[in-house]
Amino acid sequence: MSNKTIIEVEDLTMAYSDQPVLWDNDVSIVENSKTAIIGPNGAGKSTFLKGILGLLPTLSGSAHFMGKAYKEVQAEIAYIPQSSEVNWDFPTTALDVVLMGRYVHLGWIKRPSQKDKKIAEQALAQIGMSEFKNRQISQLSGGQKQRVFIARAIAQDANIYIMDEPLAGVDKNTESIIMDFLNESQKQGKTSVVVHHDLNTLAEYFDHLVIINKRIVAQGKMTKVLTQENLENANMNGDYGLDVSV
């Protein structure tokens, strides 16, 4: 793992109408890391991700990916939104959803080719969902749905994965499949940024950490940043009822 910065966020301030959510944040994500983002409820974790991806307006600041603006490299970045933002009634199959990961590589009007389909099927196979490929998305369990979204990210063939709570409410099996995928991606030189909610598995799953509570409380290598003091600074001590004396 190098120490090169792959995502550089500078002076990011965001507000919902006139209520500031994030204040003047500088964040650097290290290339080829598995970075977790934690923070108490309402700390602005999702807002932060949406801000750097340009999905929500920012008041100030900028984000650069591999030294470029997001728009220039959006095909290289796969984002997995929170599953609550998805329209589950939409009539579509698992394979179809994964195929959407290819859209960013296609121009206007162009339809996915046989090659795209093949990539999508491989992505489904990688997360053990091949047998469900023709199943309607609404009929899958929570964990299975999440795996389909991981497959969509795989099919996008991105360099950076940005995930908003992918492990929230999924079964143990799915959790280990997703983590296997993240580990495998890291071996391939890719970077992942994941909003995480479980302090128990934090140190085991990730190697870098950003603690957010409206501003950046701490960031850097997991071993250095995950301290009782930092968590208390982010008002996270009572939140998880966890003894962080590791």
């Binding site: 949406k50 991806l53 999905l55 728009k71 959006q74 095909a75 970045i77 984002y79 997995i80 939104p81 933002e85 998805v86 329209n87 939409f90 579509t92 959803v97 959407m100 859209y103 960013v104 296609l106 206007w108 009007i109 162009k110 339809r111 969509r152 996008q156």
Partner: peptide, 21 residues
């Protein structure tokens, strides 16, 4: 027909649609 693909992602997962431009 021209925007079929875009409509599809847009209806299903608007946030993701925005993230891919």
């Amino acid at each position: 027909i021209i925007f079929y693909k875009e409509f599809k992602v847009f209806i299903f997962d608007e946030t993701y649609a925005k993230s891919i431009g």
